[in-house]
Design a binder for these strands. Structure first.
Lengths: 161, 161
DNA sequence: CAAAAATACTTTACTCATGAATTAATTCGG
DNA sequence: CCGAATTAATTCATGAGTAAAGTATTTTTG
């Protein structure tokens, strides 16, 4: 029990490693499968993508408009990325940059009427897709999963700060 | 209770939607947090990346070597991607392409001695990182999570086929 | 057996992400 | 009120992913 403690972890410790790795790989697999489905359907049904959908979702949640820096923070991506996505969505007439009268460096980004219409259609379908993809878990299991993920998230937050 | 059934889902159905969305968003958040940690640590400790690590892990698991097409299938990415990763790892002397005497279109990719040494070092650390990142769940919770993820994965497999 | 189909890999063009450097405007301390 | 520091957004270089077209080599089949 005490021999080779430094050379190799004990059996219990190695089982723990194995179990953590297994959980992580399943987590990754499931997330990737769901994400791949959503990407494919967004592409084939709306000729759009997840990053574009997420950006539009934030604008939908904030009808007063958002600054580029706020989008960057909310989407948890860098400013350069937001610039590129916004450029393309603006080209397609789905979002608009409005000058901020208070600060000439800044402007607020908003959905256009056309952008709002397209987002509403996408959001309705998207929600149904997620319901279908998670239908493998019943109500109780979803609640259990949520609880476990909340615990995991809480722990992860203590690490990445 | 029966009015506007087609116009809007019932309260129960809308709660179900909400719950599925909540589970999905937590799943995504947790996966992204773990992945970001692993990427950062791989970068700072070994000047490498997850895709490179994953490719080398497959070669480690298959010492006889793998064809490009097999890597593509195992890593669940396209052939073009495998070509690029393999090119760079080969430049750095970590993997080698060997001509297949049976089929001149094909070759087998293997870790070099240097690649094997580097992978062994990375794998040891990587496993400990995962153990630490998932330490927010105790043994029973990890088992529970694994069970739920297995059910979810089983359901997802029936969809993406 | 020669033409057609399939297979293995590469190349190219595009999307999305990052980080670092740049430009321009605002704010703050002396 | 002016220069320094900060802030807002963009640009550029790089890396990883896709899909689709291209090349070369089997394999299949009529």
């Amino acid at each position: 029990m005490s021999t080779s403690a430094t050379a190799r972890p004990s059996t219990d410790a190695r089982d723990a490693e194995h179990e953590a790795l297994r959980v992580w790989l399943r987590l990754l697999t499931c997330t990737n499968l769901v994400e791949a489905q959503l990407r494919t359907r967004l592409r084939t049904n709306f000729d759009s993508t997840l990053p574009r959908f997420d950006l539009m979702a934030q604008l939908d949640r904030h009808p007063e408009g958002l600054k580029m820096s706020e989008l960057s923070r909310l989407l948890m991506v860098t400013g350069g990325n937001v610039t590129g996505l916004t450029d393309k969505l603006a080209e397609e007439g789905l979002v608009e940059r409005h000058d901020d009268p208070r600060d000439r460096r800044s402007f607020t980004v908003m959905l256009t009427a056309e952008g709002q219409r397209q987002f509403d259609r996408m959001a309705r379908e998207h929600e149904q897709w997620v319901v279908g993809l998670l239908a493998g878990l019943d109500h109780a299991e979803k609640r259990q999963m949520l609880k476990l993920l909340d615990r995991l998230k809480a722990h992860l937050s203590t690490i990445s700060d």
